[in-house]
């Protein structure tokens, strides 16, 4: 059984009212949904809240999944739409405080996720992402961090692959500019 078939089975169980199936989907997508939410929202607490809401929606909308795409693409789409709507509603960009991001990562997470150095690097990248417009940040994170294909990004954002490429190119240019401008103060290595 493929991963997608397992996800489909879990969605069907959700549709039938099986609360335990949400746990199975969380085991598969929880980290990805949380990470994408954090990268888009820039705030640990908001990312936690968003992840909860997104999994509630996954449970509620399990019956509406048409099966035209992979379950992972559908989950990404729900996540992106939720976070972008949240950003629009709040009319603001994510937090830009590097120290704030660092403080919000607990010691348990540090143990699980690696060294303090990695956390500092992540915080620096977050500080640059925070200065990208929401649309550019979304497409940049989906490709550069999550490694989604152009086709998957197109399905997630409901745009053509060519549009994905052009927007990604602009997002990368913008990120490079920001990184160059902040290179000395933030110490970000731009390749």
């Amino acid at each position: 059984m493929t991963e997608n078939q397992k996800d489909l089975a879990a969605l069907k169980r959700c549709q039938a009212g099986d609360v335990g199936a949400v746990g199975m989907l969380f085991d598969h997508f929880g980290d990805r949904v949380f990470r994408l939410s954090l990268n888009l929202l820039g705030c640990h607490a908001e990312a936690e809240d968003a992840t909860q809401e997104i999994f509630l929606r996954i449970y509620d909308k399990a019956g509406t999944f048409a099966g035209r795409s992979k379950v992972s693409t559908w989950v990404h789409r729900l996540t992106v739409n939720f976070c972008l709507n949240l950003l629009k509603a709040r009319k603001r960009r994510p937090l830009t405080l590097v120290d704030g991001v660092l403080e919000q990562r607990s010691s348990a997470e540090l143990d699980a996720s690696g060294s303090m150095e990695q956390c500092e690097t992540a915080a620096l990248v977050h500080s640059l992402l925070a200065r990208l417009p929401a649309e550019a940040r979304t497409i940049f994170v989906l490709r550069e961090v999550d490694g989604c294909s152009y086709q998957d990004i197109g399905e997630i954002l409901d745009i053509a692959p060519g549009t994905v490429m052009s927007r990604l190119s602009r997002a990368r240019d913008k990120f490079r500019q920001l990184a160059s401008a902040s290179a000395e103060s933030l110490g970000v290595k731009v390749e």
Binding site: D27, F34, E109, G114, A122
Partner: peptide, 15 residues
């Protein structure tokens, strides 16, 4: 930089 972002995990009690 990419790896540093990929190490981010959801809080243990979130599930």
């Amino acid at each position: 930089q990419r790896d540093s972002l990929l190490t981010i995990k959801a809080p243990a009690d979130l599930r």
